[in-house]
Structure formats: structure tokens, C-alpha cells
């Protein structure tokens, strides 16, 4: 098991190297740089030349890549062109916000998806099942900007249940448990919006899997042995039905850190997604490189974790 993990981690190194080269070349092909759009007739154009020089944009692409790579390995992500401060200072708090939002969203997703999936599978083709199926299709087809605005309109403006955006109440200065509750109060709506699509999708997987598993011989055997319906459902059916969700979970870990551009923007949730999107628009390469590399790292880690989880949940899976 340990050798397996080490092997996977070693394979990750060339993958990351390739990712970084690809990213860097893509950035080089994009026309314009961080200073092209800062068109301001009041400013001496020489200033932009000085800045290009200062940030090393006047060097050749290969040289720029090696400078970047060397610093990256040393843990220095460079200085943002726009903010003019080190990238790690900017990314830190963003990661925490994105992490908090994603974890909440994942909890909501799995809780509701399993709940709805199992419910529908218990009584397939009943009214409830059709309702859940119908709602899932609606959920799957809702674009997130629309879902976000709709949620704000309904739950914030009409019903006044949740705040319309931000991570905490502005200027309230809450401390301790009050501050935590305030943050939870703010995260629910964006997390829910972020979950809708996944709830809709995952509950379909769960439903199909439960229905499938219920037909298995070992379930019939277990029931024939006289085990209670609940016990069979929990021990035999549910556990086996959740296997495909683990693959999805591995991918979700990558998502945790990549953030959600649209949801974050609509809810003024200062997370990574929104940040990277802006960096791309501004051609703020140090941020873009650092952020995308991080997503790369976590996506790879996520798939390793998912594989490990397989062996935990499914005794048939062994890594040697």
C-alpha cells in the first residue's frame, strides 16, 4: 500500500512538469500582457516598459519558464502584476474561503444525493420517485448563474432568510460562536447553489446503483437468511451502491481547490475561482500559474485518495 502511494506520487512529478510547461506555453500564446490593457493617457508609456522589465516580461519565453520553475520549486510563486505583492500572500485566504465553501457544498451534496437516491430507489416508479427524477432534471439543466440569482432573489430578497453575498456580516465584529454561526449562515446559500447540479446527478447514480444491487444474489441470500430489511439495506445494499460515488469524490477534491467562478462571483465569495478568472483576464501570470498548478496538484492527490478509499470500502480492491 505504501509503495503504491509512493509510486503514484512519483508518477505525479512528470505529470506536473508537463502541466506546467503546457500552461506556460499557452500563456505565451495569448496576445497582450498585463500592461497592455492598462491604457491610461495620463501615464507615461515608459512606465509600462519599466514594469515589463521589472517583472521579466522582456526576456525570452524559455528563460522566463526556467526562472518561474526555479522560484516555484523554492516555494516562491512570484509577484502579482496587478497587486504587486507576493502571490502566496494573496492566495492563502482565498484557499480557506474556497475550501470552506466546497466542503460545505460537498456535505450538502452527498447528504441530499444519498437521501434522495435511496428514497427513490426504495419505491421505484412511485409518485415520489417521479418527483425526485423530475426535479433532478430541472437541477441538472439549471445554469449556475441563473440558479444563483434565483436563489438570491427567493431566499434573500423575498424570504429574507439568507444574506445575498459575502462570507460574513459587514462591520458586525462578531466573535466566537456568533462569528462561526454568521459564517455558516453566509455559506449555506452559495454552497447549496453549488450543490444543485451534483445533487441532481449523484442522486441518479445512487438510485440506479441501489436498484441494481437490490437484485443481487447476495442480497436475496441475506434476506433469506432472515436478516432484517434495514440491516440488509445498510450493510449489503448501501455500502455496495456507494462505490461509484467514490470516484466522483476523488474528482470533487480537485474541485474543492479550483473554486467555482460563477457562484463565487455572484455571491461575492472571495475564493480561488473568481480570483483565477480575474487573473486570466488581467494576464496576471504569476497568480494564474500558481493557482492552476495548485489545482493540478490537488486533482492528482484527489485521484490517489479516491483509489485508497476504494480499498477501504471494497475489500476486493488491493494495491500491492
Amino acid at each position: 500500500m505504501i509503495t503504491y502511494v509512493i509510486r503514484r506520487l512519483l508518477i505525479a512529478i512528470p505529470i506536473l512538469l508537463i502541466i506546467s510547461i503546457l500552461l506556460f506555453s499557452m500563456i505565451q500564446f495569448v496576445p497582450g500582457d498585463a500592461f497592455t490593457s492598462q491604457i491610461d493617457p495620463r501615464i507615461d508609456p515608459e512606465y509600462h516598459e519599466q514594469m515589463r522589465k521589472k517583472f521579466g516580461l522582456d526576456k525570452g519565453p524559455v528563460e522566463q519558464y526556467f526562472i518561474w520553475a526555479e522560484n516555484f520549486i523554492k516555494g516562491e510563486f512570484g509577484i502579482s502584476f496587478v497587486y504587486k505583492i507576493p502571490v502566496q500572500d494573496l492566495i492563502g485566504e482565498r484557499i480557506m474561503n474556497t475550501f470552506f465553501l466546497a466542503v460545505t457544498s460537498i456535505i450538502i451534496t452527498y447528504f441530499l444525493a444519498i437521501l434522495l437516491g435511496v428514497y427513490s430507489a426504495q419505491r421505484p416508479y412511485s409518485k415520489l420517485d417521479y418527483t425526485v427524477t423530475g426535479l433532478s432534471f430541472v437541477g441538472l439543466s439549471l445554469p449556475s448563474f441563473f440558479a444563483g440569482l434565483l436563489a438570491i432573489y427567493l431566499f434573500s430578497f423575498m424570504l429574507d432568510l439568507f444574506p445575498a453575498g459575502g462570507t460574513e456580516t459587514a462591520g458586525a465584529d462578531y466573535t466566537g460562536i456568533r462569528a462561526l454561526l454568521d459564517r455558516l449562515h453566509h455559506v449555506i446559500l452559495p454552497a447549496f447553489v453549488l450543490s444543485i447540479i451534483n445533487i441532481a446527478g449523484y442522486s441518479r447514480y445512487v438510485r440506479a446503483q441501489v436498484l441494481e444491487t437490490k437484485k443481487m444474489d447476495y442480497v436475496r441470500t441475506a434476506l433469506a437468511k432472515g436478516l432484517s430489511h434495514n440491516l440488509v439495506m445498510r450493510k449489503h445494499v448501501l455500502r455496495n451502491s456507494l462505490l461509484p460515488l467514490i470516484t466522483l469524490f476523488g474528482m470533487d477534491i480537485g474541485m474543492i481547490f479550483s473554486g467555482a467562478i460563477i457562484t463565487e462571483t455572484i455571491f461575492t465569495w472571495p475564493g480561488l475561482g473568481q480570483f483565477l478568472f480575474e487573473a486570466a483576464q488581467n494576464r496576471d501570470y504569476p497568480i494564474l500559474m500558481a493557482g492552476t498548478m495548485m489545482i493540478g496538484v490537488f486533482t492528482i492527490l484527489g485521484s490517489i485518495i479516491a483509489d485508497i478509499l476504494y480499498s477501504v470500502v471494497d475489500p476486493r480492491v488491493r494495491y500491492d
Binding site: 431566499f155 424570504l159 432568510l161 459587514a170 454561526l181
Partner: peptide, 13 residues
């Protein structure tokens, strides 16, 4: 619980 704790959606500030 935390809905009541937060006193609805109104921004207290």
C-alpha cells in the same frame, strides 16, 4: 438554530 441565532437575513450592521 442558526437561523434564529443570526436573526434572519437582515444585515445587522
Amino acid at each position: 438554530i442558526f437561523l434564529t441565532a443570526c436573526g434572519g437575513g437582515a444585515d445587522s450592521a
